[in-house]
């Protein structure tokens, strides 16, 4: 298993996963489940250490989004690569709720899905293979353009064409003057 963040290998995960029935460590960054967060909000926010949360992929993010900014890490799940619910969760967290922390994909994360995940707002990936850095780099180069605007800041084809059109018109107007 390799953990990648912004395309680079992270040697050790800063967040320690804590099972629902295990005691919280006295200090250090932890990753807890949504269920635990529901019942231990105060203890968790009072720890004064970075906090990560693992969201179920059938959670309606609209019910959670307002709390997103309290977290330094949100982990979304792909139980199977073909289960694409977390793409919507990711975009909503980034684009609707303005979440800026680490957004991590876990589960059945394959090379051929990395392109979609990046575009949807994921910046960290748990990839079950040794050559994850190469796979990620390759996936990132898949397409030179994007047809859809998402929160990843890339300019959609439609906007590119509009800009080119307006530039051309602007220039020809200048030339006419």
């Amino acid at each position: 298993m390799s953990l990648l963040k912004h395309g680079r290998l992270v040697g050790e995960d800063a967040f320690q996963p804590v099972a629902d029935d295990a005691a919280l460590p006295a200090s250090g960054a932890v990753l807890v489940t949504y269920a635990r967060w529901q019942v231990e909000r105060e203890q968790l926010t009072g720890r004064n250490a970075p906090l990560g949360i693992l969201l179920p992929n059938n959670l309606d993010v609209l019910d959670f989004g307002a709390e997103a900014e309290r977290f330094d890490l949100i982990v979304l799940q792909f139980p199977k690569f073909s289960d694409g619910r977390a793409y919507s969760q990711a975009r909503l967290l980034r684009e609707r709720f303005g979440y800026r922390g680490e957004l991590r994909a876990t589960g059945h994360v394959l090379q051929d899905q990395l392109w979609h995940m990046q575009r949807s707002g994921f910046d960290a990936f748990e990839i079950p293979r040794a050559d994850a850095v190469e796979a990620f780099a390759k996936a990132s180069r898949t397409f030179s353009h994007v047809y859809q605007p998402t929160g990843d800041g890339r300019v959609s084809v439609l906007k590119q064409r509009l800009a080119a059109h307006n530039n051309k018109n602007g220039r020809s107007q200048e030339a006419a003057e």
């Binding site: 073909s82 694409g84 793409y87 392109w115 979609h116 995940m117 575009r119 994007v146 998402t150």
Partner: peptide
């Protein structure tokens, strides 16, 4: 085409 969010419906 290649919609990032809707390729695994």
């Amino acid at each position: 085409t290649f919609h990032p969010e809707f390729s695994f419906l």
